[in-house]
């Protein structure tokens, strides 16, 4: 579980970001939504040690900044927005997910290989194992990186706009994988720009606006709070009961 209480971070040339009270739970998919520059990615960076902060960012009851890199990465995995296409095969990439569990010389144990195989299987990347990352499409590359963080085997997984390069079909598969992971007990926290997608596939929504969190609850609760959505996005979200719809929630003016 990740708990953020009165945490502040400053950028030299921008205003402070202040997060009063946010909780991300295991076994749930939480979407972090908001407009550009509101602080969504900053929130994730504070959790994983990429942004210094004052206040409390607690991972399983421990201050994030007091944990070593490896200790933190055994509890929380993180996939940033910009993923590099480097000259390695998918298997090697996914094996990097085991770094936090390995000693300095990075020998792969039997458990490491087991987790690697499981991560490839759960993300549907087993057949791509020996393919070079540079040969993959943008969507496949994102799935390969997802396999890497799955191999990290952490209770919480943080994803910063993970579906950017995916077409609709791949996005659907991707969310099925996330659902599978959440059913296994992993907590997923996902920054997204896509309102309908976030409402449709998440258990909880965290709405960030003007450098602070305005709402943290279920999609239905937020959809019912039309005034808040109107204030932030200039639109509302409506739920449909049509089971055939890809996104049961749709944004309306």
């Amino acid at each position: 579980m990740i708990e953020i209480r009165d945490a502040v971070t400053h950028y030299a040339d921008r205003e402070s970001f202040y997060f009063h009270n946010i909780t991300f739970e295991e076994g749930k998919i939480t979407s972090v939504i908001g407009r550009n520059g509101c602080g969504k990615s900053t929130l994730l960076k504070m959790i994983v040690g990429l942004r210094p902060y004052k206040g409390a960012v607690m991972i399983d009851g421990q201050q994030s900044r007091l944990l070593s890199g490896k200790e933190r990465s055994r509890k929380v995995s993180y996939l940033p927005q910009n993923l590099k296409s480097v000259n390695i095969d998918v298997g090697t990439l996914v094996s990097h997910g085991r770094y936090a569990w390995q000693s300095g010389m990075r020998r792969m144990s039997a458990k490491d290989f087991e987790k690697l195989d499981q991560a490839l299987a759960i993300t549907g990347m087993t057949e791509y194992r020996n393919k070079n990352l540079s040969e993959l499409s943008g969507g496949e590359r994102q799935r390969a990186y997802l396999a890497m963080v799955v191999a990290q085997d952490t209770p919480m997984i943080l994803l910063d706009e993970p579906t950017t390069y995916m077409d609709v079909t791949v996005q659907k598969t991707f969310f099925d994988v996330l659902r599978k992971l959440s059913k296994e007990g992993h907590g997923i926290v996902m920054v997204s720009h896509h309102l309908e997608q976030s409402f449709s596939y998440s258990d909880r929504i965290c709405l960030i606006h003007d450098k602070t969190a305005l709402f943290n609850g279920t999609p239905d609760e937020l959809a019912d709070n039309g005034a808040l959505l109107q204030k932030v996005f200039g639109m509302r979200v409506k739920r449909s009961n049509d089971a055939d719809l890809l996104y049961p929630y749709s944004a309306i003016k």
Binding site: V48, L79, I88, H96, G104
Partner: peptide, 23 residues
């Protein structure tokens, strides 16, 4: 040689490497 393991992670970018536990 001992610290070379971190280089493989750093090639993925600083943010990704930090997320994997690399200082």
């Amino acid at each position: 040689v001992i610290s070379a393991g971190a280089l493989d992670l750093m090639l993925l970018g600083d943010e990704t490497a930090t997320g994997l536990g690399c200082n």
